[in-house]
Design a protein around this nucleic acid. Structure first.
Lengths: 192, 192
DNA sequence: GAAAAAACTTGATCTAGATCAATGGAAATT
DNA sequence: AATTTCCATTGATCTAGATCAAGTTTTTTC
């Protein structure tokens, strides 16, 4: 299963056999059953997690007990709680598996070691962060300026591989609209 | 005016005199009058901009001609259009001065040079990006889960130094609510 | 493969916040 | 100092989307 990560990595940067050996040595494979938690609110997150197989969601629970999904991750995506990682404080979010999944984990210490020993990998993580930041800003912009319908159409257009495998009410939660509204939006847009 | 940047930098990382000389050599000071653009939609952004003095806003204009503010920057903040910088494509956003301002500019080439010659500075920019990403994610979360009132109270609590110097209708735009709603929200919350 | 649990749809009603419109006050601009 | 432009407030009305409530279909589980 770590082969998924090897392919991902070698598609992006040139890696020697010795360097790959380090990734193999430090990586920990974790299997998650559907509904199982990778991270629970209140725990401190100290890892970097690469999804080899499956699908996970990251969500917050508000005062009224409502879940708000902030991120989905499928094969070749990273997940985790950066805020907890950086601050060392307990996470305010939960991450659980939507499907049976296989995750590759690196402790923060091993991950730092890999970055320091392999400059190309360090640069890669920076460019990943750069693109994540731009994506997050675009998402903010979509919330400021788009209607429910626009947000939905945008989502299925830009993330069809995610949209096609998760339950509809989770898409609604991710878009910040009610499941009923999403159902009605879809009925209208299919006809168009 | 570049002294503002020197203080900012030396508060954060240790810098030799020779290193500081490079920052002085490559930095370009630009003065902006109120309402003057730093970046206009359609231009390619190829800089990093540090605000020495004043206040700027970054905003998008939608199909209906409505402005949506996505970011404010005051003294000791950075600004720019990362999406255009990374992609090389024309910017979809505008940045202009809300007050007469003084900006310190580094071309992308000089900025890369500084990062490669001064590892501590490179690490600093990574940590800055890390924190910007977390802030952006928290803003997404606030749009998914908060009411107009909650967003406003949060904003004046976490960014009082910004909230106190910009016109109210710009706060409304930043929060994704109408100026009238913000006026009403304030009337209610002051009484409480 | 039957029963139970989730997930989706549809209708009726409600509401937070938008939009429209008018007024008064504060800042720029001359 | 006068005039114009911009800003904030307030009231009246409207609407996108939420909430509540069934009913139906799909998926899990035993």
């Amino acid at each position: 299963m770590i082969q998924v990560f090897k392919k991902y990595l070698t598609d992006k940067i040139a890696i020697t056999d010795e360097e790959w050996a380090m990734f193999e040595q430090y990586g920990m494979i974790k299997k998650l059953r559907k509904h199982q938690y990778l991270l629970q609110e209140g725990d401190v997150w100290r890892l970097n997690a690469f999804v080899c197989k499956g699908c996970l969601r990251k969500y917050h629970v508000d005062d009224k007990g409502v879940e708000h999904i902030v991120y989905f991750s499928i094969e070749n995506y990273w997940t985790g709680d950066r805020e907890s990682l950086l601050s060392g404080m307990p996470a305010k979010s939960n991450i659980d598996a939507i499907e049976d999944s296989v995750i590759l984990l690196y402790s923060i210490e091993h991950f730092e070691l890999l970055k320091s020993k392999i400059p190309a990998f360090k640069d890669f993580t920076i460019s990943l962060l750069d693109r994540s930041f731009v994506a997050s800003q675009n998402r903010v912009h979509s919330f400021i300026s788009q209607t429910a319908e626009e947000k939905y159409l945008d989502f299925i257009k830009t993330s069809p591989q995610i949209a096609n495998r998760i339950p509809q009410h989770m898409i609604a939660s991710y878009l910040g609209i009610s499941p009923e509204t999403l159902s009605r939006v879809r009925k209208l847009t299919i006809k168009k």
